[in-house]
């Protein structure tokens, strides 16, 4: 019995030592809680918000930075990806079916093996199979809209124009991202409301009325197409009409909802 007690005490001491070391010998780190599923409200989506949603997804739910970072060298860096996407389409090693740069980017997220950057393929595959999982599958499980958001972020990162279609108030989707802090205002329903809300007529003439600081937009549809107008609103500095000062605010891309932008562009393009 004496030995039994001694052995018991010895064993308990040892277990205590192991537990003590695990509790006090090493720093106690609280693991991050599992991501929370919250509905993502797309009604108040502006291009800027869409890009920043893409950035959040890129760094968070999409787990992209796990490999696409400057430290590990596990995967190519993506800063220039949107710039060089067009060149990839012409590459002889390209296996996919994308027709333009944007489609290439989307495809690269969904079917990573369509083009594997030299040196980053699965070991032994001769750079034909990518180790990257599809962004739609499994734990990442991005929706189509989220994939688009990431592509928008990549385009913004490379400094090219964001060409991705920005969702305009479709049915709410679920996403692991929290919604923006401020309660969004209700979306405007007509082009007139948009013109009024953003005070376009303070500088521009629309239908013959308005200021003269900016070009007359009464017949703008006759000379410019929708794509030009869209860019001119989102990034006014890109091309300033001759004879006018570059004073148009750069803030519309952050304030105007995608649906509103669409209304406005359609309206302007129809002014012939």
């Amino acid at each position: 019995m004496r030995h039994f007690l001694k052995v018991t005490i010895f064993s308990l001491l040892m277990i205590g030592f192991f537990a003590g070391f695990s509790n006090f010998g090493i720093p106690e780190i609280k693991p991050a809680p599992p991501p929370v599923i919250e509905p993502l409200d797309l009604t108040a989506m502006t291009p800027e918000r869409f890009v920043s949603l893409g950035e959040k997804l890129f760094k968070g739910k999409g787990t992209c930075t796990l490999c696409h970072n400057a430290v590990g060298g596990r995967a190519p860096l993506l800063e220039q990806s949107a710039l060089i996407a067009g060149e990839r389409l012409a590459d002889s090693r390209y296996q996919g079916s994308a027709a333009d740069a944007q489609a290439y980017l989307v495809e690269s997220l969904l079917e990573p093996s369509a083009y594997v950057v030299a040196g980053f393929g699965k070991a032994g595959s001769g750079d034909t199979v990518s180790p990257m999982p599809s962004a739609r599958a499994g734990s990442i499980g991005l929706s189509d809209v989220e994939v688009d958001a990431i592509v928008a972020y990549l385009q913004d990162l490379a400094g090219v124009e964001v060409t991705v279609a920005i969702p305009s108030g479709a049915e709410p989707e679920t996403s692991d991202q929290e919604t923006p802090d401020a309660p969004p205002r209700a979306a405007l329903a007509s082009a007139d409301e948009v013109l009024a809300r953003f005070a376009c007529v303070a500088c521009h003439k629309v239908s013959g009325e308005g200021g003269e600081l900016g070009p007359d937009l009464s017949r703008i549809g006759a000379t410019r197409d929708a794509a030009y107008l869209r860019r001119a609103i989102l990034d006014p500095a890109a091309e300033v009409a001759e004879g006018y000062p570059p004073i148009m605010p750069m803030t519309y891309s952050g304030e105007m909802y995608a649906g509103e932008l669409q209304l406005l562009v359609q309206y302007l393009a129809s002014q012939r």
Binding site: I15, G16, F18, A19, S22, N23, F24, I26, E28, I29, K30, P31, P33, P34
Partner: peptide, 13 residues
């Protein structure tokens, strides 16, 4: 959620 190492060590003990 993933429990901390200390907590796990206590359960294991």
């Amino acid at each position: 959620y993933t429990p901390t190492l200390g907590y796990a060590a206590n359960v294991v003990s």
